[in-house]
């Protein structure tokens, strides 16, 4: 499985990681090696086998839908990098999309 620099840039964008040139070079090589190793799973013909997403056969765990106290706002914001009243403050959301389009 050959991984190209473009693959790495595409996946990094999906994963919201701004990688350095050095990281891009290293990951291009390493991801190729790792994908070749894990690609081993495709050797098996498993068309009749159902997938497992969870190790226990537990389904539909319900509880009564009753209001309960949640964390006080002061606790919610205790670790916030920037707070604006009862909101988390972030810079404008549109700029990066326009510039990278």
């Amino acid at each position: 499985m050959a991984i190209t620099r473009e693959d790495v840039l595409h996946v990094a964008a999906l994963a919201q990681l701004e990688l350095s040139e050095q990281e891009i070079a290293r990951l291009t090589e390493q991801l190729g090696d790792i994908l070749e190793a894990v690609g081993k799973v495709s050797e098996l013909d498993l068309s009749d086998v159902p997938p497992t997403s969870h190790p226990l056969s537990v389904v539909n765990v319900f509880r009564p839908d009753e209001p309960r106290p949640c964390l006080p706002l002061e606790d919610v914001f205790a670790n916030a990098p920037e707070r604006d009243g009862d909101h988390f403050r972030v810079p404008p959301t549109g700029v990066a999309e326009e510039s990278s389009a």
Partner: peptide, 21 residues
Amino acid sequence: VRYGLRVPADSYHELVARTRD
């Protein structure tokens, strides 16, 4: 945004990507 490290940037998307890097 809500907790942990933040690397400041001019836009939200740059902030997220730089923080994670």
